[in-house]
């Protein structure tokens, strides 16, 4: 399978914190239109496209948003105080550059001069170069969104480095799955949704899932890859194949779905690993609670340094995820529950 680096580069480098996913929405919509599909956008910005009809209603979700920051206060000297949008590590901010929704730049800094002190969000500020409060308020009013900005880079051994692989890699995988399935005969209704605000409140999955009312739901998202430290606590490693989620703090995957994915991967000889994450949550958790409950699972891509400006993934894991989804969706998934 060829790897569409150009598309992934466009996706990861796009500006899209929770609540301001417009640029990512455009990229996804344009791409789907170029495939002669007719994507729909709802009032919250969720983008969706449906393949096939009849059978079971299956929802696939990947979120377009990334973690970011919002300007919450401007002090007299023109420095910006910020609130996190989604979970970020304050100590990871220092020295990083931030790109705001007005196209302007700033840098994260810290109120103490780098002693060995624990960094908390209160002591982090953004320097945008403004000389005073008035100047800063003009361009960066309270409510201005910002994100880390980094370019996508290829690393050794088929691995890649970028910001926002969480969850643009999921978006990429869903797009590639759509490409693989769009001209195939399908037994079920596949509803692909690119959601908003997963990192913040789960708004996108909650509302789009309510509207579609699926019979089952599959999220595609990243998971922690715990293969860097000496003492390993988690099962997931880079290059180990897509991770079939068994549990995280928002979801216990439906056993029939879990067993089905394991069965497909084994039969088609696609490498895979099992994921038990003692923290975190995805759109799958949100979707599982809708209406009278929806059987749900998440296919995860092992990722290092999630929610930092430099996340790392493996191209093989990505391609294998597309293959696993493709095989699973044309198989007997409609008959398992």
């Amino acid at each position: 399978m060829s790897f569409d680096t150009a598309l992934l580069k466009k996706l990861t480098e796009a500006f899209g914190p929770s609540g301001r996913e417009g640029d990512v929405e455009s990229i996804v919509t344009e791409h789907l239109k170029s495939l002669k599909l007719a994507p729909k956008k709802d009032q919250n910005g969720n983008v969706s496209v449906t393949l096939g009809k009849g059978g079971k209603k299956i929802m696939l979700a990947a979120h377009m948003d990334e973690v970011g920051v919002m300007v919450s206060y401007i002090d007299e000297k023109g420095f910006l105080k910020i609130s996190p949008v989604g979970f970020i590590y304050p100590e990871q901010l220092l020295g990083n550059r931030v790109l705001f929704d007005n196209g302007k730049w700033g840098v994260f800094s810290f109120e103490k001069t780098m002693p060995k002190v624990k960094v908390d969000m209160d002591s982090v500020f953004v320097d945008v170069g403004a000389k005073d409060r008035a100047r800063a308020e003009k361009d960066f009013p309270v409510g201005t969104f910002g994100v880390f900005h980094r370019e996508l880079t290829e690393l050794e051994g088929g691995r890649m480095l970028a910001k926002a692989f969480d969850d643009r890699i999921g978006v990429y995988i869903l797009i590639k799955t759509i490409e693989a399935l769009k001209d195939r005969e399908l037994k079920n209704t596949l509803h692909f949704t690119f959601t908003v605000q997963e990192e913040f409140s789960g708004l996108g999955a909650q509302t789009s899932g309510y509207a579609f009312a699926p019979d089952m739901a599959i999220a595609v998202d990243v998971t922690d890859s715990d293969d860097t430290r000496e003492k390993v606590h988690l099962n997931m490693v880079l290059d180990g194949g897509p991770a079939v989620k068994v549990m995280d703090s928002s979801l216990i995957s439906h056993p029939a779905l879990k067993n089905y994915f394991i069965g497909v991967a084994t039969e088609k000889k696609i490498p895979f690993q099992l994921e038990v994450l003692p923290f975190g949550g995805t759109d799958a958790g949100t979707l599982s609670l809708l209406h009278k409950g929806v059987p749900a699972i998440c296919i995860s891509i092992p990722t290092r340094y999630i929610h930092t400006p430099s996340e790392i993934i493996s191209k093989d894991d990505v391609n294998n995820s597309v293959r696993l989804l493709e095989e699973a969706l044309i198989g007997k998934i409609g008959e398992i529950i």
Partner: peptide
Amino acid sequence: KTATGGTETKFLQQNRTG
């Protein structure tokens, strides 16, 4: 100017199809 404290906005936004 602060993002602390939750409000009912969340549930208005997420009611049914939102």
